[in-house]
Design a protein around this nucleic acid. Structure first.
Length: 977
DNA sequence: TCGTAGTACCTC
DNA sequence: CACTGAGGTACTACGA
């Protein structure tokens, strides 16, 4: 066992360790990862062949980690180093050259040597065409870098002559790495107190660290305490829980189980031990496997806090966890869906909140969990003796071994407080009545058992399934996207540098810099008096190694950007009052520019007469406000083209860094190439949200310029079924408000928006009555065209408005907002709104009632009876009050839609036939579900899915409207839409 | 140096 | 007065 004592760790001797090779590999790998993280800056470096990297960012990967060494590649290297498996690629040269840039600021990255010792230390790495100092001339004692990095690395030269090598190169071996803490780290007063309190539970913990004791405990758990409720919690190393999927990642180092019966009586494991703590790290994997019968028994009920995570890390060992009883996170969300403060839904926040924990159990030292930071966090001491600010926590494995007693207490407390939290929340939910669509149905805990508990288990299953991603395709479109972005960026920079030379080096991704160029000198809309400066300096990467006079070239240089245009008019502003540099704003400046102008660098010919103004000299183009501001004519056109290019850059860049790159990363996908996002019930309305990566915001079909959805595919021999509800929220609104007009419109079927338009406008109604237009048209055999125009063609503008209103009303959109969107007067917008409400009085009345509910009871309810709580309205100003009122009318609609979608998924999950055919749910996107299964049964399965979704409430539909479902099957997500 | 605020972009 | 709901994520600039 590696123990770091005061004398430092012993690493032994690695005869064939070619540090340089490892280092280079390491650099390449970190470049790749780095590139994934910050597409913008680093792609430039990569494409220009520089090897420069920032140590800081890479180090962050390590230091951010509180749970041990997480960086997968480093982990891999570490294993290779310690298993002596590194062989010299060339078989001869064992020379390590220590590269240093003479007289340069140190460009350092942590080198693999430090990896051995589990912490980031710096050795500088080569940079192209710089002076290199060979290692043999290098003296660590004189290297200021080592001081800087607070490292003490002892590297020794091996004097052995290489066989038959007349060059007699010396080679470097890593003899020893001593890594004392740079400065002493200390616990704060608060930590010391917490540690003392925590230590008191040690007597109650039974430590299991060998197979024999594991066996006897599992026997107890599966017999005597079988009917108890067991709270379980794992501690995991080697995972960045915020960024990585736990599917296929992470190493369980220990876990704890705390059990109690229905009388809140804790299980007794002898000698007053009530909590089991199992050491997997040093007890071995076998100890964990002994617990498989316990975890896998569906009749043994387990409670978890964030079940998803623990489930995945345990399943990574091949244990199929069953017997899911409750997830305290979901219980807490059900109890109060809008905890934003007091620790949110973290175990610590919940268990220390008196409103949540009704009784403070006497066997816990504090009301609840104490954070890792409080117990194990230490502040570094500065050289002058003062207390530093940064709190550091040792990797969890070290904690488990070196601060063992406290660690055991800490870990055990997690399961203990989880169980207490469960009991408390259960009691609370049991006191709350459950009313489903107006009918009393018991308590909210019953609701949990019937809906969210199986739903929680289903979500975990879906996460485990994951979605297959075609990486080859993604790397293809990545190339295309990067090429287009570079082209557009060059075009813009070239144009801008005509007005402001330094713009040649600007960062086109910085909205601040764009704002500087276009709106310098403009006054803040909200705070009169404040103006954006005329010019400003920015730090940018020194890509072309431009030397500032008197100084050597360095990584950064400053550029000065100044306003390049006077009085550019814009009507879009950010919330803080500055002009917006968003795509929308820029597009209105540029006007409508055909794409061929965006990706061509050629200058505009002076062919057409200047007098054309902004009229439309080039056929397809129509120029925006920038045309005039830049003086019209050729300059005006160029400006518009360049600004249009800028819009493209923004959207391309976000496509790359939000979708294309993350989907290819290893952090979030697994060996089989499937993406496992985490699906959470963590919204205030009860919708799902998806993370790491967020698969719910993949570009929609129309906007998907690179067809990213085409990268989501079915496995060979399989197909996807994509099924979505049509106008789900509107149907819910019709049901909730009992609005006759809407219910009728849905009953009649066809195009709902056309029908809305007809009900709003008398002249359309007349036209329909006189059969001058058709509401909708189902082509009969032999008919090529409809006999009379369709409503949506004849009255396109009206229908668009109607559609817009249909969507906006549920959100509580105001006349003012509409007027701005439609660029009409407020009065006109208000009149249109009145038209919409004209035959939908029930909606207006219902909205009023919801506002009243929010005001008086501070709560509104969804179809299934979940509540959303609001703060007392009287304490807010009109602005916030308006926001809460809109939320109050939106929450029941959105929440009920989420309820319906959940029911549909449960219905699909329960369907035996689908299971038999091998179809599995993969993903839900609010009103859409995606399944994967064998192609041969796709059509059958599709019909079943449609059936489940249209009758989602145990085979019936309790709504007053039908649920329209559109389903397709295909090989990819793109094709199935 | 790190964390946060502001801005932006993507979804239903 | 303020001005459509619910989310996730990335990047830049800036201050402690």
């Amino acid at each position: 066992m590696a123990v770091r004592g005061s004398s430092g760790s012993k690493l032994g001797f690695y005869p064939n360790l070619n540090v340089r090779n490892i280092a280079q590999e390491w650099v390449q790998e970190s470049r790749r990862l780095f590139y994934l993280r910050t597409a913008n800056n680093v792609t430039n470096n990569i494409y220009k062949g520089s090897t420069t990297l920032w140590a800081g960012n890479v180090q962050n990967e390590l230091s951010e980690d509180r749970r041990g060494l997480n960086y997968p590649y480093l982990q891999n290297l570490r294993e290779r180093v310690s298993s002596n498996s590194i062989v010299n690629r060339h078989g001869n040269s064992q020379e390590l050259v220590r590269h240093r840039m003479v007289n340069q600021p140190v460009q350092s990255v942590p080198a693999p040597i430090s990896v051995v010792n589990n912490s980031a230390k710096c050795l500088s790495m080569p940079r192209a065409s710089k002076v290199e100092i060979p290692w043999r001339d290098y003296s660590p004692a004189e290297d200021p870098l080592l001081d800087k990095a607070n490292t003490e690395v002892i590297l020794e030269l091996d004097d052995k002559v290489h066989d038959g090598d007349d060059k007699k190169e010396k080679k470097l071996v890593v003899k020893k790495v001593v890594s004392p803490l740079p400065t002493k780290a200390v616990f704060s007063e608060e930590s010391l107190k917490a540690r003392k309190a925590l230590a008191s539970i040690y007597d109650k913990v039974l430590v299991v660290d060998n197979i024999e004791s594991a066996r006897s405990i599992v026997k107890l758990l599966t017999t005597k305490y079988k009917s108890f409720i067991h709270a379980c919690d794992t501690e995991v190393a080697n995972i960045e829980a915020k960024e990585e999927t736990p599917v296929g990642h992470g190493e369980v180092i220990c876990f704890s189980i705390y059990s109690a019966n229905s009388d809140v009586q804790a299980a007794d494991f002898g000698n007053g031990k009530t909590c089991i703590w199992v050491d997997v790290l040093d007890g071995g994997r076998g100890v964990l496997m002994e617990f498989a019968p316990f975890f896998e028994d569906p009749s043994i009920k387990k409670v978890w806090h964030n079940y998803s995570f623990d489930n995945h890390v345990i399943e990574n060992y091949g244990i199929k966890v069953a017997g899911f009883r409750a997830d305290t996170m979901h219980l807490a969300r059900l109890w109060d869906s809008s905890r934003k403060i007091d620790g949110g839904y973290s175990l610590e926040g919940l268990t220390n909140d008196r409103r949540v924990m009704d009784t403070v159990p006497e066997d816990l030292p504090k009301p609840g969990k104490i954070s890792m930071k409080t117990i194990f966090g230490r502040k570094k001491v500065r050289k002058d003796g003062s207390e530093g600010k940064v709190v550091s926590i040792d990797p969890v494995k070290e904690l488990q071994r070196e601060d063992r007693e406290l660690w055991i207490c800490y870990s055990s407390l997690d399961s203990m407080s989880t169980l207490r939290l469960y009991e408390s929340l259960k009691r609370k939910l049991e006191t709350r009545r459950w009313v489903l669509d107006g009918c009393p149905r018991g308590t909210m805990y019953d609701f949990y058992e019937q809906y969210w508990c199986p739903f929680g288990a289903l979500l975990v299953k879906m996460e485990t399934e994951g979605m297959l991603v075609d990486r080859g395709y993604l790397s293809e479109i990545e190339k295309a996207a990067i090429a287009e972005r570079e082209l557009a960026a060059d075009k813009f920079r070239k144009w801008a540098s005509k007005y402001c030379p330094d713009a040649k080096y600007m960062n086109v991704n910085s909205d601040t810099q764009i704002r500087q160029l276009l709106f310098g000198g403009i006054e803040n809309r909200h705070k009169s008096g404040e103006t954006w400066p005329q010019s400003k300096t920015f730090k940018v990467l020194n890509e072309e190694n431009v030397a500032t006079e008197g100084k050597k070239t360095s990584k950064y240089r400053t550029i000065k950007l100044c306003s390049i245009v006077e009085d550019l008019k814009t009507d879009m502003f950010t919330p803080s009052g500055w002009p917006s540099a968003s795509g929308d704003a820029l597009r209105s400046l540029a006007g409508k520019i055909p794409t061929e102008y965006i990706y061509t660098m050629g200058d505009i010919q002076e062919d057409d007469e200047d007098s054309s103004g902004s009229e439309n000299p080039d056929g397809d183009s129509s120029y925006g406000t920038a045309y005039e501001a830049f003086g019209g004519g050729k300059n005006g056109k160029e400006a518009c083209h360049a600004i249009a290019a800028l819009c493209e850059i923004c959207s391309i860049d976000s496509l790359i860094s939000n979708f294309i790159l993350p989907l290819q990363g290893d952090r979030i996908s697994c060996a089989e190439g499937r993406i496992h996002c985490s699906l959470n019930i963590n919204t205030e309305t009860g919708r799902l949200s998806a993370r790491t990566p967020n698969l719910q915001n993949q570009p929609a079909l129309e906007k998907d310029r690179y067809k990213i959805r085409q990268a989501f595919v079915a496995a060979p021999g399989n197909s996807l079924i994509v099924a979505d509800y049509g106008q789900l929220e509107l149907r819910i609104l019709a049901h909730l408000t009992n609005c006759k007009s809407m219910l009728d419109a849905f009953k009649a079927g066809g195009d709902f928006h056309s029908r809305t338009a007809m009900n709003m406008y008398q002249h359309i109604r007349d036209a329909v009555h006189e059969k001058k237009v058709l509401l909708e048209w189902h082509p009969q055999p032999g008919q090529e065209k409809p006999p009379v125009p369709l409503l949506k063609d004849a009255f396109g503008a009206e229908r668009r408005k109607a559609k817009m209103l249909n969507f906006s009303i549920a959100y509580g959109k105001t006349a003012l907002g509409l007027s701005r969107d439609w660029k009409v007067s407020v009065k006109e917008a208000r009149d249109t709104l009145k038209l919409w409400y004209g035959d939908r009085k029930e909606v207006l009345a219902w909205q009023k009632s919801q506002k009243k509910l929010a005001r008086e009871k501070c709560e509104v309810y969804t179809l299934l009876g979940r509540s959303r709580h609001f703060p007392n309205l009287t304490q807010f100003g009109p602005g916030q009050r308006g926001h809460i009122e809109r939320a109050a009318i939106n929450a029941p609609v959105q929440g009920s839609a989420a309820d319906v979608a959940m029911c549909a998924m449960l219905e699909i999950e329960r369907n035996a036939r689908l299971k038999e055919l091998g179809w599995r749910l993969l993903l839900q996107v609010h009103d859409e579900v995606i399944l994967e299964g064998p192609s041969e049964s796709a059509e059958v399965a599709k019909a079943i899915v449609v059936e489940c979704m249209s009758k989602p409430f145990h085979g019936t539909n309790i709504l007053k409207v039908d649920l329209a479902v559109d389903a397709k099957c295909a090989k990819s997500w793109y094709a199935a839409k």
